[in-house]
Amino acid sequence: MTALDTAGPAVTAGPAPTRSTKRSARRRARTWGEIALLAGPAVLVYLFFVLLPVLLAAYYSFFNWNGLGPLDQFIGFDNYTRLLADPVFHRSVFNNFFIVVMSLLIQGPLAILIALLMNRRLRFRGLLRALIFVPYVLSEVTAGLAWQILLQSVPPTRWGPVDTLLRTLGIEDPPSWLADPDVVMWTMFGILTWKYLGLAIILMLAGLASVPDELHEAAALDGAGWWQTQWHITVPLLGPTIRIWAFLSIIGALQLFDMIWIVTGGGPLNASSTMAVYMVGNGLNVSQIGFGSAVAVVLFLISLIVALVYQRFALRRDLAGALTGGVR
C-alpha cells in the first residue's frame, strides 16, 4: 500500500539548461507536448472509465432510476435507508466478512504450513507447483460450473458425483451442500479455498525463496529444531509476503461475486448473497440503477475502511518488529 504514497524521484537525464531563454521556452513547450502525447491517452481512458463511473454511482444513488428514462426522481437518502434496513443486505455483508475472516484464519496458516513443508529440494517440484496452481488459472465460471455439477444432488433418488463418492465411503446422508441455507456458505468457502489456496501457497513459496539458507543453518547450529526455526525465523521473515497475500485476500473477499453468482446465484433464500451479488441482483435483474448504485457506494466505503484499518494494523505490526503468528 505504501506504493500508493509516492512516485519517487524521477531520473533526470535531460539535456543541461540552455542559455537562450527563448530556446528553453520552446524546449519546455516541447516537453509538455511529449508528456501530453505520452500520458494523455492513458489519463483520458482512466478518468472516463474508472473515475467518472465512481462519481456517477455516488450521484445516481440519490435517485430512483431504472437506467433508461429521465433521471428526475431525486429521493435523497431513501435508497440508503432502504438498503440499511434490508435483512438481505445485512446477510450479504455478514457473508462477505465470513469469507474474509475464514480466509485469514484457515487459508493463510494452511498455505504457510504447506509452503514451509514444500520449501526444500524436491524432485518434480516444478510439476507440483504447476498442478497446485491450476485452480487459480481457471475462470470462475468454468470452476463454478464444475463444482455445481460435482455437488448437485436430488436426494434420495439422484446423487451427484461428490455425494456418490461420500456414500461409497460410508457417509449415507451427506449435507445438502448448495440447498441448505445453513451449509451453503461453508460450501462456498470450501470451493473458494480450493480455488485460491494454490495461489497462496505459490506466493508464500516465492516469499520463502528470499529467506537466506544461512539463517536456518545458524539456528540449527544453536540447537533449534526444524519447527522452532520455521516459527521464530522463517515465518517472521515471510511478513511482507503474508501481508500482500492477506491484502489481496481481504479485498477479493469483499468484492466476491463471480463464484457465488455462478454456483448459487445468491440462494437458497439469499443465504449465500454477498454485497456484489445483492447489487447485481438489483441492478441487472430489476433494473434499479439508483438503488444498485447506493449498494456500490456502501460496498466502496466498507472496502475503504477495511483497507485503511488493515494498513494501520499492518504498519503497527511492522513498527513492533515482531511479525510472528502469520495472519490473525
Binding site: 472516463f48 465512481v54 437506467g67 456484489a276
Partner: peptide
C-alpha cells in the same frame, strides 16, 4: 475503485 463498484454506471456510460 475496482470494477465491481462502478459496473452499473459504467453500463449506462
Amino acid at each position: 475503485f475496482p470494477l465491481t463498484i462502478s459496473i452499473l454506471p459504467l453500463t449506462v456510460l
